[in-house]
Amino acid sequence: MDYVPLISIFCAAFAVSFGALGPALAEGRAVAAAMEAIARQPEAANTISRTLFVGLAMIETTAIYCLVIALLLLFANPMMP
């Protein structure tokens, strides 16, 4: 029985699922804060939403890293026979 593919697939799913948790919570907080800021200062909506987009992309990168790690495990695993 070869355990490497089994463990690789499990770890890939594990990495994506738990890697998506943190960014999801963080993006929720960021959007909530931006909503509040826009509600307080509607005239600054342009600046706030631009900063929000850049910040969301930054946060999302951590989830993308996990996705890339998962793909590396599945498709470019050096241990895989």
Binding site: A57, E60, T61, I64, Y65, L67, V68
Partner: peptide, 13 residues
């Protein structure tokens, strides 16, 4: 490097 991975990861996914 993170700009590279961000663009690649988003479009590729």
């Amino acid at each position: 490097f993170s700009m590279f991975v961000r663009l690649f990861g988003n479009v590729m996914s």
